[in-house]
Amino acid sequence: MQRADRIVAIGLIFVSLGVAWKATELPVGILPKEGPGGGFLPFWLSLGIAAVALMVLIQSLVSSRRDKSATAGAGVFMSREGLRDLMRVGLPGMIMILLIGVISVYFSAALFIFYCLFLVGGHNLKTSLGVSIGVPVVVYYIFEKFLIIPLPKGYAEFLFYWN
């Protein structure tokens, strides 16, 4: 847990310094007769984040030195089983999102839901197929037919418009 805390703090320092550097594209100072320039807020905010993140890091280092057996740093960030469970659905979830732009949100969702229900959740074929087809169909009718919000269809677009 402590290690994760430090990694995040270090990550925050690097990211915010990068953003601060980017913010200098606009004036970061106070302009005469106008007040703060366009880069002022993002620049000083990111420097501030870097500074406070550094304090978090120092705090974590100091507290662990003070009492080695402390409960403060105890606890694991993520157990091995937890990570495995997370990856079993999280990764396919990410793939589902990436596939939306390629094979349409409907097919991508159908595959993902089927995978989760059938392969991970252990539901029977009937339930799995029913939900994985039913959800996209409902989404299709609500969004495309009723609300008329076209959702991404990628290369499968022609399938939705026959005429």
Binding site: I103, F107, A110, L111, Y115, F118, L125, Y155, A156, L159
Partner: peptide, 18 residues
């Protein structure tokens, strides 16, 4: 995994035909 792969493949084919 078999039915899952079948479903995935058939979708891919349909898309590729377009």
């Amino acid at each position: 995994a078999i039915p899952f792969l079948t479903l995935a493949l058939s979708l891919l084919i349909v898309v590729a035909l377009g």
